[in-house]
C-alpha cells in the first residue's frame, strides 16, 4: 500500500497548495485581455474575492506572508506610474485578519450572511486601494470606475464562491454542510 500512501501524500500536498495556486491564477488573470463587457472590469477585484473565500474555508493554507507576496505581485503587474506597491497586500492581509476574527459570524451561516460579509469587506478593500492610490499619486481619481468594479464583483460573488468553496478539505470532521451547496443529505460527489 505504499503507492496509496504516496498518492495520499500527493493529494495532501495538492490540497495544501491549491488555494495559493488559485490565488496566483487570479492575480495573473487580472491582466488577461478578456473583453467580456463588465466582467473584465471586475478582474482586478477578483483576487480579493479569492482571499476572502479561502480565509473563510482554509485560512491556514493562505499564510499572511504569502498574501503579502501576492498583493505586491498584483500591484506590480497592475502597474500605473506612481501607484503604491503593497496596497493590495495590505488589503489582503486585513481581509484575512477580519475574516479569521469574525469566523463565528461567517462560517456555517446561511450564504446570504457570507455575501453581506463579503460586500462589507470588499467595500473596505476598494476604499483602501482607492484612498491610497489617490493619496500616493496626489490626484483626485474618479471613483466611478471603482464603483462599477465593486458592483460587478458583488454580483459575481454568488457565482464564483460556491465553486471556490469546493476546494475545502474533505476530512470527516469538516464535511461541507448540505446548506452550503446544492447537495442533498446522503448525496456524494466524486
Amino acid at each position: 500500500m505504499r503507492d496509496e500512501s504516496f498518492i495520499a501524500r500527493l493529494d495532501d500536498l495538492g490540497r495544501l497548495v491549491l488555494p495559493g495556486m488559485i490565488l496566483l491564477f487570479f492575480v495573473i488573470l487580472t491582466l488577461a485581455p478578456l473583453r467580456v463587457p463588465y466582467v473584465s472590469d471586475a478582474l482586478p477585484l477578483l483576487p480579493a474575492l479569492v482571499v476572502f473565500q479561502f480565509s473563510l474555508a482554509t485560512p491556514e493554507r493562505l499564510p499572511g506572508p504569502f498574501l503579502l507576496a501576492m498583493g505586491v505581485l498584483l500591484d506590480l503587474l497592475l502597474g500605473g506610474p506612481g501607484a503604491p506597491v503593497g496596497v493590495s497586500a495590505l488589503g489582503f492581509v486585513l481581509i484575512r485578519a477580519a475574516v479569521v476574527a469574525n469566523r463565528r459570524y461567517l462560517v456555517g451561516v446561511p450564504f446570504l450572511f457570507q455575501w453581506i460579509g463579503f460586500c462589507l469587506l470588499e467595500w473596505m478593500f476598494m476604499v483602501l486601494v482607492w484612498g491610497f492610490t489617490a493619496l500616493w499619486t496626489w490626484t483626485a481619481i474618479d471613483p466611478m470606475p471603482a464603483m462599477v468594479q465593486y458592483a460587478v464583483v458583488i454580483v459575481i460573488y454568488p457565482l464564483l464562491a460556491p465553486i471556490l468553496a469546493r476546494v475545502r478539505p474533505r476530512d470527516p470532521l469538516n464535511v461541507p454542510e448540505p446548506a452550503r451547496g446544492t447537495a442533498r443529505p446522503g448525496e456524494t460527489t466524486a
Partner: peptide, 25 residues
C-alpha cells in the same frame, strides 16, 4: 498581523522612495 501590516507599509514606502527599484521589479 501588525508585522504584516508594517511590511505592507514598508513596501509602499520603499516604492515611493526608490522608484527605480520598483520600476525594475
Amino acid at each position: 498581523l501588525v508585522f504584516l501590516v508594517l511590511a505592507a507599509f514598508a513596501a509602499m514606502l520603499i516604492g515611493k522612495a526608490d522608484t527605480i527599484l520598483v520600476e525594475n521589479a
